[in-house]
Simulated scan of single mutants.
Amino acid sequence: MSADPALGAFFEMLGAERNAASNTLAAYRRDLDDLLQFLTARRNALGTASSADLRAYLGFLADRDLSPRTQARRLSALRQFYRFLVEDGRRGDDPTAALDAPKLGRPLPKLLSEQEMASLIDICGKLDGAEGARLLAMIELLYATGLRVSELVRMPIAAMMRDQPFLTVRGKGGKERLVPLNPPAKAAVTAYLAHRQSHLGERPNSPFLFPSRGKEGHLTRQRFGQMLKEIGLKAGIDPARISPHVLRHAFATHLLDHGADLRSLQKMLGHADIATTQIYTHVQQERLKSLVETHHPLAKAAKSTSGKRKTAQEK
């Protein structure tokens, strides 16, 4: 990205005042770099772009067949940047104020059934050695707590050294939250800790619960995702249906299925807005709708009648 004092100040603000995560900063850089390239081709600059310029950019994104959700994320980055310019006195007007966000659908999260989760854990429990113990501990922790994968791989070993019924998690923006830790997860982590010091000789003095020889010092999100897909295959689960985030979805949905209230779930997931948590109630509704359509005798009768009419029309 070209040197730009306003961009430098913007990213400094995100890091210092909002404590933005490295992944968030990287995403903003990519989005603003894409806009910069577009404006440069039009012989314009970030600081002087008009609403018309930005509207043309959004049209450019649509022409590239980017999804409405990706377009909305790009627009969010633009809004953050130009609002900063106004607040910092670098610009008198906000060119994003007149822009409309693309209409979004409401995609429901992927998830695994309770039976599939049980199968996944069972397969992991049959693996030998340190690798198996580590994978089982990670899966049990994710399913027991609903952690984000970034929170899991960066978890300090100190968080598990205290025999407490709750796990203290440092989430987005450095905010801490307490999540109950169930006995199976505790047992899996305890079993893993017995292997940890000799686990491939990987940084035995590392502060991370899941250390690695990589530059980050801990197991990466990408590697854990690969491991999940591999074990998913052994459990008979399509790799396309499984990821660390899917396990977070399974935690939330299965808790609601068993009577958890939405506010408690919001706190455990670390959602700032309960509207984010409410997506799981839509998952429940869709599953109930599917259950009725599949198994209710009147629904079956309606399908049968519809099929007969179609056959008669074809004849």
Results as ranks from 00 to 15, higher is better:
N44E: 11
P184W: 14
A252S: 01
E286W: 09
R203D: 05
P102W: 12
H249F: 03
T24Q: 10
Q266G: 08
R248P: 03
R83M: 02
L85P: 02
N19A: 05
L193K: 05
L111D: 00
I121Y: 07
L54G: 00
T311P: 09
A312V: 09
T145W: 06
T305F: 10
H282E: 02
S67C: 09
K126F: 06
E140Y: 07
H245M: 08
G173N: 06
T168A: 15
R196S: 05
V189Y: 12
R223A: 00
D100S: 15
L291E: 14
A6H: 10
L61A: 01
T48A: 14
K229F: 03
V179R: 04
G201Q: 05
E114G: 15
Y143S: 09
N205D: 13
E87H: 13
L298V: 10
K175I: 10
S76N: 14
L61P: 00
K289N: 03
A260Y: 14
A144S: 13
A299H: 12
Q226Y: 10
I121M: 06
V149P: 00
M160L: 07
E202L: 13
R69C: 02
N182R: 11
K234M: 00
A133F: 01
G132V: 08
R91P: 01
I157D: 06
E131W: 13
L120M: 05
H199M: 10
G146A: 05
